[in-house]
Design a protein around this nucleic acid. Sequence first.
DNA 1: GCCAACGTTGGC
DNA 2: GCCAACGTTGGC
Length: 172
Amino acid sequence: LRYWLVKTEPEVFSFANLWSAKRRTTAWDGVRNYQARNYLRDGMRTGDGVLIYHSGAAETGLVGLAEVTRAAYPDPTQFDRGHDGFDPKSAPRAPRWVCVDLTAVRPLERLLPLAELRADPGLTGLPLLQRGSRLSVQPVSPEHWKRILLLAALGARQDRTKPLSENKLRMK
DNA sequence: GCCAACGTTGGC
DNA sequence: GCCAACGTTGGC
């Protein structure tokens, strides 16, 4: 099993949204970058762990955990005229883009801000923190994965003045 | 195959 | 809104 990180703008698709959905499952579609596509197609397997990162928001950072519940299959939006992700150069017999299904596992105990991730010595080398990192699908090492889960849990324990429910509310 | 122009991402 | 960094496109 491997670990991954995916980015999303919460105004477009938020973790809170996924968490409150009936099956807590969504097709992670619309990826139109070849390197990210390769990670989806060649790397992700059912059962892999996924960190959800919110970009372009008031509070950017890691917000939740998900799991790959279906490995790569052709992204239907590439054939959908009128959809943002429509790709006229992609043929149904040779689809260019793929998506996976992700199912929310749980929110992190608190939002882990980008600045805090950067400041943590245990996260050196995390692709997200590398200069000009724009990939929307990135690998995460097992060590970094463990470290991130620990950071979220530890920080939440230290900050007992705020109940967990408040952290959850803030994700909306 | 080179590379300038352009579009997009994403932090601030 | 600004701007740096990056990916893609297309002329040559």
